[in-house]
């Protein structure tokens, strides 16, 4: 049943810019409806802050339907909040109770520097993709799409890995700020498909090298990434990537 009068206390990380020191600040939001998304509650709070002449809280968001991967927020000690399998924009206030206090922080990792408040720079992910997360096929080079049959099972597995939205929750959840889940999902998708075969070995080596260069930590198999991934990307992708990596290392000239 929907409720319209929840009172919520928020402790939000405020940080003017990358150089400034940040701290948690406390805000109260009244008349929160259980049908609101978590971000809509932030809209309400920001509206209030602006009317009071204060600086609204900066947070990343765009599609608000759980697919663009832009929203982040470490909510009550978990990326994207307490509900598993959803992004912050799809987290609704019905997951909280009247009177709750909620702590909200940005993703924290050396490779994700804070830009302002809850906004971080995730361009490290783009650079990892640029290092090898593609199949080198220029426009116009393709053969007929059905000339290369791919079993449904393989296509489905590739799709499951490709469902990653690049939000960075895996890094945020990992105690080592490791990006292995993100990187392995792309490596797995492209290595499963026959189209990805020609660059299979250089791809995994290049992406892994870029991942290390960005300052992400190493995987120690806690499984936190998988548990917090809004798209349910499996750690089996990490095993798959390890396999690809060893094979490529052994084959390297």
């Amino acid at each position: 049943m929907s409720e319209n009068n929840m009172k919520i206390t928020l402790k939000v990380w405020r940080q003017r810019n990358n150089k400034a020191k940040g701290a948690l600040e406390t805000y109260k939001v009244d008349e929160v409806s259980s049908d609101m998304s978590f971000l809509e509650m932030f809209d309400v709070l920001n509206d209030k802050l602006i009317r009071e002449g204060k600086d609204p809280i900066a947070f990343d968001h765009d599609c608000r339907e759980g697919i663009c991967g832009m929203c982040s927020m470490y909510i009550n000690g978990q990326p994207h909040g307490p509900l598993q399998g959803v992004t912050t924009c799809q987290l609704h206030m019905r997951s909280f109770k009247d009177g709750d206090t909620i702590v909200v922080e940005p993703w924290r990792a050396k490779a994700f520097p804070v830009i302002k408040d809850l906004v971080v720079d995730r361009s490290a992910f783009d650079r990892i993709i640029a290092a090898g997360g593609f199949i080198s096929v220029n426009t116009g080079n393709a053969q007929d799409a059905n000339a290369l049959p791919i079993s449904k099972e393989l296509a489905d597995r590739a799709f499951a890995a490709a469902a990653c939205i690049g939000c960075g929750a895996c890094v945020a959840a990992c105690k080592n700020s490791s990006a292995m889940l993100f990187v392995s999902a792309k490596v797995t998708q492209l290595s499963l498909l026959p189209q990805g075969e020609p660059e299979r070995q250089s791809r995994v080596l290049d992406m892994a090298a870029q991942m290390d260069a960005e300052g992400f930590g190493s995987c120690t198999n806690t499984g936190a990434c998988e548990a917090e991934c809004p798209k349910g990307i499996s750690v089996s992708n990490i095993a798959h990537m390890n396999r690809e990596f060893f094979a490529a290392e052994l084959n390297k000239k």
């Binding site: 990380w13 702590v103 105690k175 490791s178």
Partner: peptide, 8 residues
């Protein structure tokens, strides 16, 4: 890899 820890 995580110079600043989470507060909570």
């Amino acid at each position: 890899a995580r110079p600043v820890q989470y507060a909570y």
